[in-house]
Amino acid sequence: MKTSGKSVANGAMVTVDVDRSDPHYRAWLKEAVRKVQADANRSADTHLLRFPLPEEWGIDLYLKDESTHPTGSLKHRLARSLFLYGLCNGWIRPGKPVIEASSGSTAVSEAYFAKLIGVPFIAVMPRTTSPEKIRLIEFHGGQCHFVDDSRKMYEESASLAERTGGHYMDQFTYAERATDWRGNNNIAESIYQQLRLERYPEPTWIVATAGTGGTSATIARYVHYLQHDTRVCVPDPENSCFFEGWTKGDPGACTDHGSRIEGIGRPRMEPSFVPGAIDRMMKVPDAASVAAVRALEKAIGRKAGGSTGTGLWSSLKIIAEMVAGGRRGSVVTLLCDPGDRYLDKYYSDAWLAEQGLDIAPYTATIEQFLATGEWPR
């Protein structure tokens, strides 16, 4: 059956003129889906790392190390799901570009999958995007399309898709629905499988930061679906509206500034953020995120991105509450991406000074807590 006209199924007005029953198209589609699924099949599951805590606390802290994916971040899972979703919906077509509004890890991962199935990829991003992120996108075969105002990324992505006949992936709308939250080796199912032989196989808390909101939605839905007693906390950085929107029940909450913690925090309540599924939110100062990610390196010898620090800070604060209440159990958070992408930011004292961030008080808080079990007031 040949279809033509305008389609708005993916959020962008795109001219459609494809014979869906054409054997060449169907053969291409089958091969593209096979390649994306094969990527998951040959990739070992990501590790669950232990963060050292005093044995007498009776609490275990784990970090789900998503940096070991082929493209080095948590967004590899999301990109794979989005490509399968777009392919199976008939939105991604041979020879037509896939377009995404992203200057971060999602764009890197989507460029990888676009190259894998042989379609062009264009990342729409602010002109101020770091050279390292641009290099990674281009390394995986993607192109970078710059805008002067980051608030115009969505609009420009949809417009570019219309002009090229391509597909605007729109991670911020489709992240929560593209992933099978009931299982199928999603991140939540993986966490529970890996904890089976641990002393606390059902975590008391899972702490997941939010960019699109897709990961926190997947984890929270899985917890409810399997009737676990686990609680889900979403930490939010400065200059993000998720915390305000959640606490006030305001779907129109917004901010005028972008997040300094790359990959998480948004200036608007994104469609993929599902407030009703999560149990708790916590506002985390950016300086605390940096202090935590540096403390992580001291503890386990691994550098990680700032979003990992945001989750770790919140996890330590939750553990302090557990210690104070005499409760035992496990807490899981995410190691979202490697720190070598951010050496000129979160590991640079010059950048901290430029941003006016003083991490010393937060570093002292972490050190005092790990030494005494008490969280300074």
Rank of each mutant, 00 (worst) to 15 (best):
A175D: 04
P235W: 01
E100M: 00
S43G: 00
N10A: 14
L343N: 11
L82I: 10
T372D: 10
F113D: 04
A208Q: 14
G265M: 10
G142E: 09
D180Q: 12
S330G: 07
S315K: 01
P235M: 04
K298M: 07
W57L: 07
F172S: 03
E155W: 02
H24Y: 00
V119Q: 05
A40Y: 11
A32T: 06
S289D: 02
S315I: 00
Y342D: 12
E138T: 14
T212G: 05
F146E: 08
F369E: 01
S67H: 02
G5Q: 10
R328F: 00
S330T: 05
R221F: 09
R34W: 05
L343M: 15
A178V: 05
D45G: 12
N239M: 11
G118L: 13
Y25Q: 04
P23L: 09
F83R: 04
C336L: 15
W351R: 10
G213M: 11
E66I: 05
R341Q: 03
P235Y: 03
L343V: 13
T164Q: 13
I319S: 04
T3R: 12
A123F: 07
I318P: 02
P131Q: 11
R341E: 04
N89D: 10
R302P: 01
K2Y: 10
Y174S: 03
K96L: 14
P97F: 09
Y174F: 15
A107G: 15
G249W: 10
F243H: 15
T204P: 02
V119H: 09
R177S: 15
G141E: 09
S7C: 13
P201I: 08
T365K: 15
L78S: 11
D149K: 08
A288Y: 02
T372C: 10
W205C: 03
S314A: 15
Q37I: 00
V14S: 11
S315G: 02
L84Y: 03
D337H: 07
V36A: 08
R151Y: 12
L84V: 05
L312P: 04
K30I: 00
W351F: 14
D349T: 15
D229I: 00
L87N: 07
Y222T: 09
N10G: 14
M282L: 12
G258V: 08
D45E: 10
D279E: 11
G356E: 07
M282Y: 04
Q37N: 15
W28R: 03
D337L: 12
P338I: 03
I318Y: 01
P126D: 11
E202R: 09
G329R: 06
Y362R: 03
A287N: 00
T173L: 13
K303W: 09
A12C: 10
T333D: 05
G265D: 05
T255I: 13
L29W: 02
N41Y: 01
T15F: 13
N185A: 14
Q227V: 04
G263K: 05
T179A: 15
E132M: 14
R196D: 01
A295I: 00
A27W: 01
V234Q: 00
Y174E: 02
I261Q: 06
Y225P: 00
F51S: 04
I187C: 13
G5R: 09
G305E: 02
G263N: 11
I137A: 08
F273H: 04
G141N: 13
A188W: 08
A188F: 03
A299D: 02
I206W: 02
P237F: 02
L370Y: 12
G95A: 11
G306F: 02
H145K: 08
T15G: 11
P237R: 07
F243Q: 11
T71M: 12
I92M: 12
A158F: 06
K64P: 07
W313G: 01
